[in-house]
Structure formats: C-alpha cells, structure tokens
Design a protein around this nucleic acid. Sequence first.
DNA 1: TGTATCAAGTTAATCGTTTAACCAAATAAG
DNA 2: CTTATTTGGTTAAACGATTAACTTGATACA
Lengths: 342, 342
Amino acid sequence: MQILYPTIKDVAAKANVSTATVSHVINNKGRISPETIKKVLKTIKQLKYHPSRSARGLASHKTGNIGFIVTSDHFLKTEAFYTRIFLGVEFEAHRHDYYVLLTTTKSDFKKGDSLPRFVLEQSIDGIIVAGKIPKLLLETLCEQKIPLVILDYIPKYFECSSVLIDNVRGGILATNHLIEYGHKNIAFISGEISHSSISDRLRGYKQALNDSNIEIDEKLIETSDDYLSMQNGYKATERLFKKNKNVTAIFAGNDTIAIGAMQYLKDNNFNIPNDISLVGFDDAETNSLLTPPLTTIQVPKIDLGIEGLQLLVNIINSENKMIKKSIVPVELKLRESTKPRL
Amino acid sequence: MQILYPTIKDVAAKANVSTATVSHVINNKGRISPETIKKVLKTIKQLKYHPSRSARGLASHKTGNIGFIVTSDHFLKTEAFYTRIFLGVEFEAHRHDYYVLLTTTKSDFKKGDSLPRFVLEQSIDGIIVAGKIPKLLLETLCEQKIPLVILDYIPKYFECSSVLIDNVRGGILATNHLIEYGHKNIAFISGEISHSSISDRLRGYKQALNDSNIEIDEKLIETSDDYLSMQNGYKATERLFKKNKNVTAIFAGNDTIAIGAMQYLKDNNFNIPNDISLVGFDDAETNSLLTPPLTTIQVPKIDLGIEGLQLLVNIINSENKMIKKSIVPVELKLRESTKPRL
DNA sequence: TGTATCAAGTTAATCGTTTAACCAAATAAG
DNA sequence: CTTATTTGGTTAAACGATTAACTTGATACA
C-alpha cells in the first residue's frame, strides 16, 4: 500500500558504487573523487532519494530532532509568549534541518516522575527548555548529558547554557522613559517577583531611579509572588493606591499585570495617560488593541527562540561542551499609555 | 560521554528470555505466559528500559510522529488561530504517545517543489493539514498514501478526511442573535469569500434571514477575496456605508474583520453598540480586551485539533482507509458589542 | 498408540544507514 | 628499484528493534 521509497542500496546499485560511498557523499566524509561525487549526487536526484531518519538515527545516534520543554502551566497561562518562542525555535530549526518535538511537563516534577518520552526513547539530539521548570527536572535532564539550552530563565545554583532577555536594560528603558516624561513618583508593580526575569526588571527600575538621583521609595514598589495574571495586576494596583496617593506613573512587571492595572485605574476613574502613565513589559502581541494602546518594552520572542536554537546547534556540533550564554536586546515601544507630566 | 541506555538485549539477558519475547511483551503480540510477561515487565522497570524510537521505526515502519502542515502565510497572519489548533493536536498526540512535527509550507507550492522533509525521510505516520494549502501540495501528499486529515478547510473537487467548524451554524447563530435583538438591516462583511469557511458563514447568514422572512439585500453584503486583515475590515465597512445608510448591525466574517470595522465605526463616530451592533467570528482570544468587548461566535480551536488527531489516529490504526468527516460545534459568545434595538 | 493441535517461546533475517577496518592501485620518497 | 604513503574507494559489522518461520514439549483426539 505504502509507496516504496528508494534506499541507499538502490542509489549504490544505479551509480555502480558501494553503499558506503553513497553514505560518504551524503555526509561529506571519507575520500571520494569529484567525479564519483557528481555521479552519486546525480543518481540521488534521479531517484529522488532521501535517507531514512530512523535508519540514520539508529546507525549514527543522531535523530535530527530537538526537544522543546515548557511547563503546561506556563504554556496555558502565557500562551502567546511561549508560542512565539517556540515559533522562533521551530523557524530556525527548519533552517538547520532539525524538527522540534514539543512537550509540556507538570510544574511539580517529583522524584520518580518520568522524563519526557523523547529523552527516554532517545529521539532527540538536544533540548531547549523554555522558562522556569522544576529544579529536579532540570538536574535530571542535565545528568543525561544531552546538550541543553534554557531560555528566559536562570536557575539559581546551577550553570547551564542560556539565552536571556535583557530584563535589567528593559527595566531601565521603561523607567527612564517615565523619568524623561517628568515623572517622579514612579511605581513598580508585579507578581512572581522571585522569577529572575521579574526581579531583573525591578533591578533595572531601581538602577534608573538611582542614576537620575531619584530616591527609591519602597512604598512605590508593590510586588508579590503570585502569578502574573490580570487579577493580580488589579490587586497590586489596589494595594499600591491604598498606601500611596500621589503616584503619577506605573511600570508593570509585564503586560498582563499592566492590563490588570488598567482595569483598576478605569474602575477608579483615573484617566490613562492624563492622570497616570503606564508602561508594561511585552509578553503579549495584543497591546495595540487596548484602549489606550499600551506603551511597553518590546521583547523579541521570535529572536529569543532563534538565538536559542543556534546556541543549541553550536553545542551539539562542538566537541567541548562548554557553557555559553547569550542575551537578546529589548527596546521601548512607545504607544499611548504614557504622557509627559506637565 | 553520552549516558548508555539499556537495550532490548540487556533486558532479554537479565530476564533469561530471547529479545523476541521482550519485544512481544512490549507490543502485546505473540503467545507469552502471564509469568513470563510479569518477569519481563519487572526487568524492564528495573533497568528503566525504553525502546529506541529509531530502531523501532526502522524495523516496524512506525515512527510515533505526526506531521503538522500549515502555510507560513496563515501561520504568521493568523497565528493565534493555528497555534491553538496545533496545541490541541499536540495535547491529544501526547495522550496517544505521538509527537507532532510542525512544518510550514509556502502558499505557492509548484510542480517540482519538494515535500516537507518529514514526508521524504519517512519520519511520520500520518499528516494533519491545518487550513487551506495549495491544491498541488495536497494532491502530492495524498499520492504518498500516508494517512491524512485536513482541518478547517474542504478542498473543492477532492475527497479527504476532515474536521470542520460548523460555519453555517455559526452564521445562523450570529444572525439570529441580531434578529432577536430586533435588527432588520443586518450587514455581512468579509474578505476571503472564496474560502469554504467564510462562504459557509455567509450561507448561514442568508439562511437565518430567510428563516425569519427577512429579505436578503445584496447591498448589505460587502465581501471581497482580500485577506482577512483589519485593514480590509476597515475598507469593507467603508464600502458598506457608502452604499448604505441605514445599517444597524454588522456580522463580520471573522474577528479581525470585526476589529477593522470597529476602527472604522469609531473613526466615523458611530457608537458600538448603541448605533451599530457588531458580531465577529472567533479567530482570536483577545476580544475581551477590546472596547467594547466583542460579541462573537466562539470556535473551539483546541477541540478542533483534538478531534483532528483522534480522527488521524483512527485512520492510522484501521485497515480500511475510508474517508471520515467530523464537524465541531460553535456557540454564541455574548459580550458587549451587540444591543437590542429599541 | 500414533497423530494433530496448541501453547510458549526461540532463531535468525530484516529494516536502511553509518563507519571502522581493509585493500588495491597510483604516487612519492629514499 | 624498492618501500612508504596517499587516493579512492569497498567490505562487513554494527545500530536496536520487529517478526515470520521454526522448535519443543504438552495436551487432545480418534
């Protein structure tokens, strides 16, 4: 029933060489004369031959697949964010002739829980981890000695290759923007403050204030470790205004928090941007649909994925499995939720 | 360097049986006594053995992978829509122990262009096609005799297994909702009218009007074959109002078109929903962020993916490769962009 | 008692590559 | 003119499963 694909034997027979020669031509190995190479390549083309992945995998222990791991929590709650990273990875993988196997994992990985199937069944050559995953899982993965790159998260007490967003710089950009617009009472609100990305944004905020000789007022910093949801953005803003009456600008830890803040401000008859300027941090692509459109720090999620895959491919192809790190830049995306203070 | 995984031989040796017996136990084939099964399973657990995908693939011609094809155009322009479908497929694949290989393809597939790599390299057991893809590509895929399911699109002059959204019913629901709200001059606007999904929505619109004995006014129908973009939604609304002054409600072919319409209406000082009621058709998840939140027909994209994968697995496992079709229901999602006409 | 039948496994070929080890002819070196 | 080295391959053994065909001992049947 299934169509019969030509095998390496067919090519070898037709080209009057051994299968080893064909294999060598395909993989640019061994010593083959230019004429033979030409002849073999021509035959491959004629027969429309493509080596079987399974056979290659079995013989060479290279599968041509990359595993992509993200916790199901993250994926569901911040879908657009991780989806775009995945897309970046997938896009770049395509260029490098890899396929990406996506899997989600529980965020409460326990001892005895089994690793993603693609690890156990040895159907990947490397792993990309997107965002925070349980420490134990990460450790277990590293024990497998499979090349691994982690995106958008630095585990504490742990070294591994990673690609990060320049969160500190993003925090500085956002805060400086508000400072330049003449704001002095600039608040920072967020959830998940223990996540490296968020705490880095806060660090950027503080640094920018420092650099402008504005005193850091802890009452203007309203953080928690709750999830980055609209609800928690709403609540954080509520708490902020309970403690503080004279806020004129808010830098939110991410866009979802910002949308929650927006909601609170609308409910309490604050006008954005006339009364309050608001800056987010880009986890979503839909900010331009908001009223008013949200000024934010733009995170190149696709690029993050691309960079991650490139790094991984580098590691796979290099002998010395050294740890490499990379940081992708961010920029301010000016929209209508911020306004110079008169 | 790489950790050494146990092979079927290790299991066989330790359990004092042949590799064939182990294989039979794993695959529930052959005649093995309960005690032997128990013994083998125990050994497998002890050694933490997992069969290698590559080896299995080579020997049995089953890869455990599913290919997912979408045109890059669609994916980029309607990312959230296809992403969610992909997520549904991926989710269900996980349950069936499959992995999904995603690939994008150009929307102008020509004779001589090569098929997705996973087809050529035989690294998939079945294919899911999401949305409209070039006819020639679809035909070429079908020639390969690989089980295939197409989602959210029916090619003309072509039979294959598919899962579709109940677009006609969606059109009826949207239109009936407006009728029940007392609207008479209900417009339909859209792009891509030649796409089966859109033309079905229009059919639903017409049928609903008919059923309520409202005459169909062609001047109230403003369609084109342009892409479903906000810009084209804007333009379509503009054209609509040029021809027509007394529209009180608009049913848009999808949410993006609706957002474009919203923009036009705002720019021209129409109030939604007081002056004009607006209904979309759900391609996005972000409608609740709009002002006002958009009433729409909710499309269960995740379910569409799930259903698609189930159908595909059915086909893979069944002897007779007959064509199966499935339709997923839609429902009205009431928000604030529609209002009873006084 | 002799012969089928059946249960429970085993043997060995096979899937389509890769690759270490080998080889023959040509060239280079001394 | 030998002997070493290089060039351009080939041979055959893996890789780790699956599976058709076979075996062997037990049971059933006539």
